[in-house]
Design a protein around this nucleic acid. Structure first.
Lengths: 208, 208
DNA sequence: ACCGCACGATACCGATCGGTATCACGCGGG
DNA sequence: CCCGCGTGATACCGATCGGTATCGTGCGGT
């Protein structure tokens, strides 16, 4: 990785492609995909529409690229957590939950970008939509693996429960129906791990 | 239920206002708010834009009215469940969960209208957004009351957990990351009620 | 020194949007 | 009988959208 040659002393002057992606991230997150025009992205990135269309085929491609990068960021956060607690899958699960919980105040009233983008992309063939679905599927697989590694008896069910709670905490924060969602989320996930660990199962004729 | 007087034999010919709202419901749910133009609503309602603007001040007002009706439908479903199991708050909670779980296949890949609409309405002053937030707050209060009535030691925490899981099941169904979400959701809610009922609490310094 | 090429600025295109104006029709009550 | 009014149809408005064409310019590699 060569050092970024000729750093232009002006901090705000990354290469145009980066500026465009930064601007798109900010605007898409705060305003939504369809409300943000290409012109607005160009202005915030201190460039022009033409420059955007030199780097991205269409606006949809830019949206997809934004979500790809965002998904990679989440993956990286997962990686960091796993590296932080090697061999301790339960701590890793809690670390992931903490990552989401700590992000709640930032998301605040705008909510999870993946969930929001899905709402704005009804057609399943949209490239950005596929990025989201693949990302979510990957996250779930990873969570199932963690639960299995932790020795939980029904890893898929535990992962489903954790996934539901993580997603729900984000939307409930967005619509403001639940206060202190971060704290509650952590307590809930702790409870899920604890409960699944100890074999105190509810005996509701669950012969599956 | 008084019979709707003078049913015009042609089923498709309700008064224009009803047809408009029906058309709006269908289109908003399947395509999203911003993707659907007033013209499209008019065509599906077998009327014209002018007729729409005679009944609704703006498109935003129509959106808000649609969400108001939808919220009332949910409230009615809650009422039905409570009437079905009078004095049995735990069964009422499970009934609400079942109502959501059974709706999942219908929502399928389009998701919860409230969540989706929030994503399309970033400005908190939008009337429709206020409708959603009030609805969600009301649902949460109601769930807290049910949990308290059921004698759960921490009703707010239990209601938060149930809310998270209900919302999460809907978004996970939408993005396809979890299969059999309805079954899983029911098992999870059953577990929540059971666990909160029995005083087997994880002793995690919960002095509140 | 020069040349290429990515970049910046501007103007433009067709389509679609929310919303309005206008007019003709049809039906019900005085 | 006829008047009024809600309705349907159409045409239109200004704004904004995604996307393109064009031209100038400045910086870097040879």
């Amino acid at each position: 990785m060569t050092s970024t040659a000729s750093r232009p002393s002006r901090v705000a002057k990354l290469p145009p492609r980066e500026r465009i992606l930064d601007a798109a991230e900010e605007l898409f997150q705060n305003e939504g995909i369809r409300r943000v025009g290409v012109q607005a992205i160009a202005e915030r990135a201190e460039t022009t529409k033409m420059a955007i269309y030199r780097h991205f085929e269409t606006k949809d491609a830019l949206v997809a690229e934004w979500l790809r990068i965002l998904a990679a960021d989440y993956q990286a956060a997962f990686d960091r957590v796993e590296a932080e607690y090697p061999g301790r899958p339960e701590e890793q699960i809690l670390g992931v939950a903490r990552f989401i919980a700590e992000g709640l105040p930032t998301l605040s009233h705008r909510g999870c970008p993946f969930i929001n983008s899905l709402a704005e992309l009804p057609d399943r063939s949209h490239p950005a939509r596929q990025v989201i679905e693949e990302h979510k599927a990957r996250q779930t697989r990873r969570l199932v693996a963690l639960c299995a590694e932790a020795g939980l008896p029904d890893p898929e069910q535990a992962a489903a429960e954790i996934t539901f709670v993580l997603e729900g905490a984000q939307v409930s924060t967005q619509n403001g129906s639940i206060d202190r969602a971060g704290d509650r989320l952590m307590r809930i996930v702790e409870g899920i791990v604890d409960r699944h660990r100890s074999p105190l199962v509810e005996s509701r004729g669950t012969t599956d």
